[in-house]
């Protein structure tokens, strides 16, 4: 489903090249749940960004659902994301000017599907059937992340990228969100890439890779 070879990312920082990711090679079969763990600054988010095609690597290649990402233009990658990828962010990243329902509809609308039915169903599925017309600022953190989950699944993604999905939530709320995410993931057979530094959360994934200073230091199945 997802693989990368010799993935390296180097940024210029203060005029000096700074290598954030070194020679990462990785394969994730369809339906697998992979947790990426490591301390802050170990390159987790950079890896996620590259795997999801949000950025271009300095070296190496990424294949997403058989597509070589480097062959795609910026816009083609955006379309690919729209069709096959879902995201959950640490800071929820709901669009503040849209209601919960509209936020969930965005990926569908981008594809030209404007039916509100699926979005409503998904919001009901995450327990927010009575919050459709609320704006993000009117929702609690847990509720916002549940809207984000509904949004992530609205386009029936083949692969879901979750970046510290519980990072901004208290333990019990976080737990509820994770349970929900895992359920949805199982139901739809989505491949999951989960970035976290919470070992407990990582344990929920079948496979864990550990990053340190931009390199994989361990790759283990639970």
């Amino acid at each position: 489903m997802l693989s990368c070879e010799s993935l390296t990312q180097t940024y210029l920082s203060g005029g000096k090249p700074l290598t954030v990711l070194k020679d990462i090679t990785l394969t994730v079969p369809a339906g697998e749940a992979l947790a990426v763990v490591g301390p802050s600054g170990s390159g987790k988010s950079t890896l996620l960004g590259l795997l999801a095609g949000l950025d271009r690597p300095s070296a190496g290649v990424v294949y997403l659902d058989g597509q070589r990402m480097a062959d795609l233009s910026e816009d083609e990658r955006a379309k690919l994301r729209g069709e096959k990828v879902g995201f959950v962010f640490q800071t929820f990243q709901l669009i503040p000017t849209l209601t919960a329902l509209e936020n969930v509809q965005v990926p569908l609308e981008l594809r030209g599907e404007s039916s509100a039915g699926r979005a409503q169903d998904l919001l009901a599925r995450v327990g927010l059937a009575d919050r459709l017309d609320h704006y993000p600022s009117q929702l609690s953190g847990g509720e916002q992340q549940r809207v984000a989950l509904a949004r992530a699944f609205s386009n029936r993604p083949k692969i879901l990228f979750a970046d510290e999905p519980t990072g901004n939530l208290d333990a019990s709320t976080g737990g509820t969100v994770i349970d929900l995410m895992m359920e949805l993931n199982r139901e739809s057979g989505t491949t999951l890439i989960l970035v976290t530094h919470d070992p407990e959360l990582a344990n929920r994934a079948r496979r864990t890779i550990r990053l340190h200073d931009g390199a994989i230091i361990s790759d283990s199945d639970a």
């Binding site: 816009d75 729209g82 981008l110 386009n155």
Partner: peptide
């Protein structure tokens, strides 16, 4: 910027 970045993640092209 953030809202736009999110839209881009969700599959909106630069043109959209």
């Amino acid at each position: 910027r953030e809202s736009i970045a999110v839209l881009r993640c969700l599959g909106a092209t630069a043109g959209t």
